[in-house]
Design a protein around this nucleic acid. Structure first.
Lengths: 149, 149
DNA sequence: ATAAGGTCGGTGACATGTCATCGAATGCGT
DNA sequence: ACGCATTCGATGACATGTCACCGACCTTAT
């Protein structure tokens, strides 16, 4: 059964983990901005777009893949389009929809950004985990992230 | 030495952990808003304020304790003051500073919110970790969060 | 064929956080 | 005592994300 409070172990773990939840994304975000002038959201859009061979996604499919709302992606893609990182075309299959694609510029920016980002993820995270820890963290993350919303 | 890419294990762990970094805070935030009408930031301000016996902190000290910028706390405290959750007074020791305190209302709101929040943290996180996992996650979180910025 | 209901992307209002900057106040070195 | 760098909180401009909602379009049942 559960109580209304946490044990000391739980409390300390939760505190430590909460610090990690704040600090790690903040550090990666700063590295990314410094190295490549991208926000984490920009990077995720670019790298997800690049996953498809033709670098094209219907907005709704990209939003679903990234687990973003369509509204959020619509706003963000508009900003990235203004910067020339992505392009937008009408969907020939569905006149309501639109197709997003990586521009050459967007691809170049991603291509330059990726190696720096990998270095950053290593330096601020992966390098500090043993293989055992890596494995455990993976099962644990999957288990909790997969819980119903 | 490092390569410019990730191994498959690293890649999968990083993906899974990144999902957790997004999903867990989002779920806790939704629970908190639904149960108590508070944002996570609100809750953190209220609960940190309540840690001192007299429920008073100089703004700069509270900001340092929470690892927030003074600007952020200034903005946020202004919004919370408008809702009657916190109060603000001049600091008699330092005419530049100000002292924040929990109002009775703020204390009541926190008092109502806390047990629900604990239930939420359990349901969405702690209950799904074994004691071993809890311990490992704590050392690992501390290790990584404590890295230099 | 058509009406009803769902899905699509876009939009405006708003909440929150960052950054650069300000004026006021402090305190340290001389 | 004085002068200058620093610290304090506030503020405005801006970036980003949420939410509610819109019109346009598609699909399904009748």
């Amino acid at each position: 059964m559960h109580t209304a409070w946490l044990t000391e172990d739980e409390e300390n773990t939760w505190r430590a983990f909460r610090r990690l939840l704040i600090a790690l994304p903040a550090r990666l975000s700063r590295d990314l901005a410094r190295d490549s002038g991208l926000s984490p959201a920009d990077y995720e859009v670019l790298s997800t777009l690049s996953e498809k061979p033709n670098r094209r996604w219907a907005l709704k499919d990209l939003a679903a893949k990234m687990e973003w709302s369509r509204s959020r992606l619509s706003h963000h893609a508009a900003r990235m389009q203004a910067r020339g990182l992505v392009g937008k075309e009408p969907d020939p299959q569905d006149a309501r929809g639109c197709i997003l694609h990586l521009t050459d510029d967007g691809f170049r920016v991603l291509d330059d950004a990726a190696p720096h980002h990998v270095v950053s993820v290593r330096a601020r995270f992966l390098d500090h985990l043993s293989p055992d820890e890596l494995a455990l963290l993976r099962t644990l993350s999957t288990r909790i992230a997969d819980l119903p919303d």
